[in-house]
């Protein structure tokens, strides 16, 4: 049986991870390579890296640290941040990344999804969607969640899938950072509508939230950042908990 995936997400700025301050047993908590290796060792199923450097100039080092991560880490990983074209993607995949994720660029230029799927295969195209509920409608946002995109979540998600995305990484901005649980209703709707995997993101606080995302939201994978980085949830314990509740996980 295909297992549900647990995915820590690391923000990288100028080649250094941010937010990693409370992580135990790290010699260098700002080193993406060492954090990645630690998570892989703990049983993470995949990793996502988002380069949040302010400018393209600062992102020049991206392929370099991606290569270093690929050298050390023996599980699949996705990288994103500032990808606008197939030319941006090729060096990242060549450096050893398994997938790339695009967000704002996909909204501004939906054809990019199709272009990347054709050039590299759907399996390596993850489209991230940030959305929040406004007047009872899920509205897609871009530019790190700062701008409403004039698109509704479900129709955009369907279009993304039709254009050839391999996965959708759905972040509920309403839940992100609250540690009060994932947006289970929206996840269920997405998983009913789509025939591609959906990764739940935003709101993880306790192991039960992951259980809800998988059982009630029918998510294929769940992603979290701070709750893992600060050691509030430890991956081996989370997986043991999920397994005890009959969720197929890799132990």
């Amino acid at each position: 049986m295909l297992t549900k995936r647990i995915i820590p997400c690391l923000d990288v700025k100028n080649g250094r991870t941010v937010k990693g301050i409370n992580f135990i047993n790290l010699r260098d908590a700002g080193d993406p390579v060492e954090m990645a290796a630690t998570y892989a060792e703990q049983g993470a199923d995949e990793l996502v890296f988002l380069d949040i450097s302010a400018s393209q100039e600062d992102r020049k080092t991206m392929a370099q640290w991606v290569r270093e991560v690929a050298h050390v880490v023996n599980i699949p990983f996705t990288v994103g941040g500032g990808i606008k074209s197939a030319n941006d993607v090729a060096p990242l995949l060549e450096a050893g990344a398994d997938k790339v994720t695009i967000n704002t660029a996909a909204v501004l230029n939906p054809g990019l999804i199709e272009e990347l799927a054709k050039a590299f295969g759907s399996q390596c195209v993850v489209v991230a969607i940030d959305a929040r509920k406004i007047n009872n409608t899920w509205v897609v946002h871009t530019h790190g969640g700062s701008r409403p995109a004039g698109k509704k979540l479900y129709s955009w998600a369907r279009q993304v899938a039709e254009l050839g995305a391999g996965e959708i990484l759905f972040t509920s901005m309403d839940h992100d950072g609250t540690q009060q649980g994932f947006a289970v209703d929206a996840l269920l709707k997405l998983n009913t509508l789509l025939h591609i995997p959906v990764i739940a993101s935003g709101g993880a606080g306790v192991p039960g939230h992951f259980l809800d995302a998988f059982v009630l939201g029918r998510a294929d994978a769940a992603l979290a950042a701070s709750t893992f980085h600060f050691g509030k949830i430890k991956i081996p314990e989370l997986k043991k908990f999920l397994s005890q509740h009959n969720i197929p996980v890799r132990l």
């Binding site: 049986m1 995936r5 199923d45 025939h195 994978a221």
Partner: peptide, 15 residues
């Protein structure tokens, strides 16, 4: 062949 319970590609960790 995808069905209601199975998405294609088969992607992820399996036993």
């Amino acid at each position: 062949q995808a069905d209601a319970q199975h998405k294609v590609p088969h992607m992820g960790w399996n036993r």
